[in-house]
Amino acid sequence: MVAAINQALKQEMSKDKSVVLLGEDVGVDGGVFRVTDGLIKEFGAERVIDTPLAEAGIVGASIGMAVNGLKPVPEIQFDGFTYQAFHHIKQHMARFSQRSSGTFHLPMVLRAPCGGGVRALEHHSESPEAFFVHSQGIKVVMPSGPYDAKGLLLSAIRDPDPVIFLEPKKCYRSFKEEVPEEEYTIPLGEANIKREGKDVTIVTWGAMTRVCLEAAEKLKEENVDVEIIDLRTIWPLDTEKVIESVKKTGRAVIVHEATRAGGMGGEIAARIQEKCLYNIEAPILRVTGFDVPYPQFALEDYFMPDVFRVVKYVRRVMSN
């Protein structure tokens, strides 16, 4: 996925002079995950900018750049440090257009790695998507693999609205996918039916998508036919596709890595019962991180939803 994102950035920067990258160590070093590797050579230090160590500064300055005609793609080095910039995200990125009655749209994409499972230090394994959704006025995107990452990122950079693009670290290098060399886009706001099935709908996104796919294979042996929806864009939510699927299967499980209370799972469950209560045959269940701060890595395997837990919950909705 690292290579796919790198390619998307490179292609868009070659095409569109107004795209600039900025962040901590994104230039010479190519980013701590090497996502921006080689780009400074290609586009120079004026468009691939190594900034001082200041997240609010990076996002705040990007907002200004977007106001003044550029398409900045700031990188926050790790999910847990997006909070250092949270006031710019919430107070400005989310509402500049509203505040100026549309005069200053912000065509910017804030990229950050997200999620756990890679034995990282404290604050390096967070899933902050719900904070950003709750900020409103921002599109929140999380790819589940290399192919999606490229197509979604190209759409995000071309989108006139501000986007937060969260890249699951777990997917950076753990598996390969065929990614076409040429440019292609995947529309924002549209979920992807990752696997078709007729018995139960799993709604998920990011790194959990693969966990769910594996769980589905296991459940197949038990004659449970799982449909998996990868949201791709967490906000705006593709409610329609979720409802369509649940109407068909009659059962739903929502799987996310972020903690449960206040997480997106609750929102999705609420929408399902609002829109198709009479089609559901079992309680809607959530498989999520526990309601504790993300534990340090000696404990992270206990925290992370895994195939075992997903299978357990699906069995539970099937038994109803």
Binding site: G57, A61, S62, I63, M65, V67, N68, L70
Partner: peptide
């Protein structure tokens, strides 16, 4: 900070 970004964009452009 927004002003810094605006000035930065002017400089880049």
């Amino acid at each position: 900070l927004h002003a810094a970004g605006i000035a930065w964009a002017s400089k880049i452009k």
